[in-house]
């Protein structure tokens, strides 16, 4: 059966995330834009900061921030701090990111592939902050949650990693795959009053 066509990834949101405009229709367009980013390569690393910094220079071309909750890398890849000595690295799928990192890191580092374990939703639009405030208790004021920082928190009762990409605002929300449909439905439902464009 090796002759099968190269396999296609099937998103957890297939059939659920349907492009279109939903809810209210404000004169100045939908207040919320919601889409899925993907396919992505997502890898978790547990290592010493120095090890990752050294490896990151080679393997990623950027260095992680040693500060909690900080993100590095504006393009591809992006490195998000997710715990003491732990980072999540994400980039659009292409190379075997996990293998690449494993090769660059010392034996003591733990590399765990999570490309399929996370669904990444991109949330933007003028009402994006209000929508987040409906489902999550962290302070999303632009002074408190700045671009290039991220938060691991509870969003509509799901564990989520929220990466603030820009002050516009644009957020990337990483959620566990099995909860993705629930989270998407809650976000969409909460967005209807603002008008939601799903792309």
């Amino acid at each position: 059966m090796a002759d099968l066509a190269s396999p296609q990834r099937r998103s957890a949101l297939e059939g659920v995330l349907v492009p279109g405009d939903f809810g209210a229709t404000p004169f100045n367009g939908p207040g919320i834009l919601l889409s899925e980013r993907g396919p992505l390569s997502v890898v978790q690393i547990e290592a010493g900061t120095e090890d990752l910094t050294a490896a990151a220079g080679n393997a990623l071309g950027i260095a992680p921030s040693g500060m909690p909750n900080e993100a590095a890398g504006t393009g591809r890849p992006r490195i998000l701090g997710t715990g003491t000595g732990r980072w999540l690295i994400s980039e659009p799928e292409g190379r075997d990111l996990a293998a690449h990192l494993r090769a660059s890191l010392p034996e003591s580092a733990a590399v765990t592939g999570l490309s399929h374990a996370r669904v990444c939703l991109r949330l933007s639009g003028r009402d994006a902050r209000t929508l987040l405030a409906k489902g999550c208790g962290i302070d999303i004021h632009p002074d408190a949650f700045r671009p290039d920082t991220s938060r691991m928190t509870s969003l509509f009762h799901c564990a989520a990693l929220i990466d603030c990409r820009s002050a516009e605002p644009v957020y990337d929300i990483y959620v566990h795959r099995s909860y993705a449909v629930h989270l998407f439905e809650m976000l969409l439902d909460g967005a209807l009053e603002f008008g939601c464009r799903v792309a």
Partner: peptide, 8 residues
């Protein structure tokens, strides 16, 4: 180091 890979 432990990591949940249930969803992976």
């Amino acid at each position: 180091k432990v990591a949940s890979v249930t969803d992976e």
